[in-house]
Each structure stands twice: as structure tokens, then as C-alpha cells.
């Protein structure tokens, strides 16, 4: 352990910086593809980097009536939470850095922290738009957490019935033992339904159209982010970029954790490289279908409609998925 501290710091820094860079690259791809789908040219791929640099250089305005420490603290907490997510998720062929210290339940909590931080920041901003946005974020959080947790816990439970000895909530175990290999046809249908539910939860988790209700530019002028500027906004922007990658990586770890290298009988550094590339492509596919296509293909929903959507159909789908997994176990 003693000798490993230096290496651990290096690894940690690589994951953090790599995660941030990756998040911004995916944001660039997102913007470019969305633009092309709308018949626009779109910004260059590196535009998100320019955006962050520019925001960092801008004045950081704190509204007069805001509670400054909460207002300034929220973006830091948000970015810290999503960055620590990266330590618990399997990235490519590599096991999570802190795999032994936290599991799926921690990941669920860490996913909720940025939303809560934004909510606190929104209330602390003392702006009517931000307050409305914060209230909406609260409703959103209560709506999509339920199907999210059902899906994650069902998968872990089903795995626990197969591998009673393993710590099934650990993401490395989940990623190493994809359920597809174990379940029968009923379970497979159940898994597809759970994947579907998570694909719908993803844009809500990331506050993207049709669920960008807490930010809703045309309604509440950016809502939660209305009063944020400069460095604080840059931190939220980065947090959003990293969270997109983390959420997609979580879906990949749960449902498509397969590597390509084994199948191609590769080994050594080349195998790692191929697996990382394959992982990036998988993340891109998830981002494409659950974020990019969705955000250009739908209108923004209203908060009550979004809440109803998550409480009834999406929760319903994930419950059916869970029941199918249970039946699969019984059968």
C-alpha cells in the first residue's frame, strides 16, 4: 500500500483529467451531431473547451441577496461528486480505482448529489427563476430516482441469487459478470425493459430535453443556472459534461460490459487499447441514443407531465422488468 500511494495519485489524476477531457469531447460530439440532425453546421468539436476557458476568464457574479457560501459551494460540490463517480465506475477494461471502497448504492447517491447541489445553489441564488428551477429539480429528482433504483437493485439482486458469495453491489463484480450470460429468456426480456427504463432516466438525470425542465431556457431563463456566471458556471458545465460520461459508463457497465480484446484473442497493451476504444464507442452509442437523438427529437415536457411519465410508465416498465427477473429466478 505504501509504495502505491504515488501511483494511486497518478492514476487518480489521470482519471479525473481524462474524465473531464472526455466529457468535453463528448459534449462537442453531442453538439455537432445535434446540429447536423437539425441541418445546421454546428460548432467545431473543440467548442466546449473554448467555452470552459472563456467562462473561467469571465467575472464570477454573486447576486446581492444570495447566500454566498452556499451559492459558491454548490458548483464545487457538484463537480466533486461527479468526478468521484469516475473512481467507482469501470472505465474500459480497467477495474474501478476505488472499487473496493464503494458500490452501486454509493454511485446512486453520488448521481443525486449534483442535482441536490444545483438545487441548493438555485435556492441560495435568491432569484425567482432559480427558485422555480430548484423546485422543479426537486420534483424531477423524486420522479426519476425510483425507476433508477428499482433497475439497479433488481440487477444486483438477480446476480446475488447466482453468485451468493460475491459482493454483488460492487460495480467491478457487476461488470465482470454480465447477467445476460446467466438469465433465461424471461430474464433477458426483463433486462431489456430495465435497460429501456434506464435509457429514459438518463436524459432526466442529465437535465437534457425533454427533461431540461429545471433549466428551461425559454420559460425560466436558465432556471437553476440563471444567476450563475464565470467560474461557477464553468464548474457546472464541466460537471454536466463529466456526468454525461459517467451515466453512460454506468449503463455500459451494467448492460454491455463486454470487451472486444478477449474475442479478438489480443493481449498486452494492444488489448487494453482496443478495450478502451471499444468502451468509448459504447459510451458514444449510449450518449447518441439516450441524449442526442432524444434531445433533438422531442419538445420539452412540463414538470407534471415528466413526473407522471416517470411515476407511471417508466416505473411500471422497471417493475415489470424486476418481476420478470424474479420469475426467471423461480423458473
Amino acid at each position: 500500500m505504501t509504495g502505491g500511494i504515488g501511483a494511486a495519485i497518478w492514476q487518480g489524476a489521470t482519471v479525473l483529467i481524462g474524465g473531464a477531457l472526455l466529457g468535453l469531447v463528448y459534449k462537442g460530439i453531442d453538439r455537432k451531431l445535434a446540429a447536423r440532425m437539425q441541418a445546421r453546421i454546428g460548432p467545431p468539436l473543440r467548442q466546449p473547451f473554448f467555452d470552459v476557458v472563456k467562462l473561467l476568464a469571465k467575472e464570477n457574479v454573486v447576486p446581492d441577496h444570495a447566500i454566498a457560501w452556499l451559492f459558491n459551494g454548490a458548483p464545487v460540490v457538484s463537480l466533486a461528486a461527479v468526478s468521484s463517480l469516475l473512481f467507482y465506475l469501470p472505465l474500459g477494461g480497467f477495474a474501478p480505482l476505488l472499487g473496493g471502497h464503494g458500490d452501486l448504492v454509493l454511485v446512486i447517491y453520488l448521481l443525486a448529489v449534483p442535482a441536490i447541489a444545483m438545487m441548493v445553489g438555485g435556492f441560495a441564488a435568491a432569484s425567482p427563476y432559480a427558485s422555480v428551477g430548484a423546485q422543479r429539480e426537486m420534483v424531477m429528482l423524486m420522479s426519476y430516482e425510483f425507476p433508477l433504483v428499482i433497475a439497479l437493485v433488481s440487477i444486483a439482486w438477480r446476480l446475488s441469487t447466482i453468485l451468493p458469495e460475491a459482493s454483488v453491489f460492487s460495480l467491478s463484480v457487476l461488470a465482470a459478470n454480465p447477467l445476460w450470460d446467466w438469465v433465461g429468456p424471461l430474464g433477458a426480456v426483463g433486462l431489456v425493459l430495465l435497460a429501456l427504463a434506464l435509457l429514459v432516466v438518463t436524459p432526466a438525470e442529465l437535465s437534457k430535453i425533454p427533461f431540461d425542465i429545471p433549466e428551461a431556457e425559454t420559460e425560466i431563463a436558465g432556471g437553476l443556472l440563471a444567476e450563475y456566471s464565470g467560474r461557477n458556471l464553468a464548474l457546472f458545465y464541466l460537471a454536466d459534461a463529466v456526468k454525461t460520461v459517467a451515466m453512460a459508463a454506468l449503463l455500459v457497465a451494467l448492460f454491455f460490459p463486454y470487451g472486444l480484446a478477449d474475442r479478438l484473442w489480443l493481449s498486452g497493451p494492444l488489448a487494453g487499447l482496443v478495450d478502451v476504444a471499444f468502451f468509448l464507442i459504447k459510451v458514444l452509442v449510449v450518449v447518441f441514443f439516450s441524449v442526442i437523438v432524444v434531445r433533438v427529437g422531442f419538445a420539452r415536457l412540463k414538470i407534471d407531465q415528466a413526473a407522471r411519465l416517470f411515476w407511471i410508465p417508466v416505473t411500471g416498465i422497471s417493475l415489470v422488468g424486476m418481476v420478470l427477473l424474479i420469475l426467471d429466478r423461480v423458473a
Binding site: L33, A35, R36, M37, Q38, A39, R40, I41, G42, V293, V296, G297
Partner: peptide, 17 residues
């Protein structure tokens, strides 16, 4: 709309550069 989206993704953008 999704048919239009795919078509536009593959087409040249309509913007005058």
C-alpha cells in the same frame, strides 16, 4: 420527425457558411 433527423444527419447542412 426521426426520419427527417436521420436524413438531415446524412445530408449537407442547410446553413449558408
Amino acid at each position: 420527425i426521426f426520419v427527417t433527423l436521420v436524413r438531415q444527419l446524412l445530408d449537407r447542412p442547410a446553413t449558408n457558411p
